Simulated scan of single mutants.
Amino acid sequence: MDLAPLALFLPACFALNMAPGPNNLLSVSNATRYGYRTACLAGIGRLLAFSGMIALASAGLAVVLQTSALLFYAIKIVGAAYLLYLAIQLWRADPQMQDESVTAKVGIWALARQEFLVATGNPKAILVFTAFLPQFVVPGQPITPQFALLGALFLALEWIAISLYAYMGLHMRRWFAEPRGKRIFNRCCAGLLSAAAAMLLMARRA
Rank of each mutant, 00 (worst) to 15 (best):
A112P: 00
K105G: 15
K76Y: 08
A81S: 10
G79A: 15
Q96Y: 12
N122S: 14
G169W: 00
V118K: 02
L150C: 07
A7V: 09
L157K: 06
G60W: 07
P123E: 15
L200F: 08
F154M: 14
L25C: 06
H171A: 13
F132M: 05
A195D: 09
A81Q: 10
C13L: 13
A62R: 04
Q141F: 08
Q96E: 15
W175I: 06
H171D: 09
L47G: 01
A166C: 02
P142N: 08
T38L: 03
M168D: 05
G169L: 04
C188Q: 06
A42S: 02
R46D: 02
L170T: 11
K76N: 05
A198Y: 03
A104T: 09
T67W: 11
G140V: 12
G191R: 05
Y167A: 11
L133T: 04
A19N: 08
L16I: 13
L111Q: 08
A125K: 08
A110N: 13
A81K: 09
T144Y: 10
L86W: 01
V63E: 14
I44W: 07
L170R: 08
A12D: 15
F50N: 00
A110Q: 10
L164Y: 04
L170E: 13
L48E: 03
P123K: 11
L71C: 15
Q135N: 08
A161M: 04
C189R: 03
T120I: 15
D99F: 12
L70K: 11
L41R: 02
M202K: 10
F154R: 06
F132V: 06
N24V: 00
A12G: 15
Q135P: 06
L149S: 09
F50V: 09
R113M: 07
M172E: 07
A112F: 00
L65K: 10
F50T: 06
F116A: 04
K105A: 11
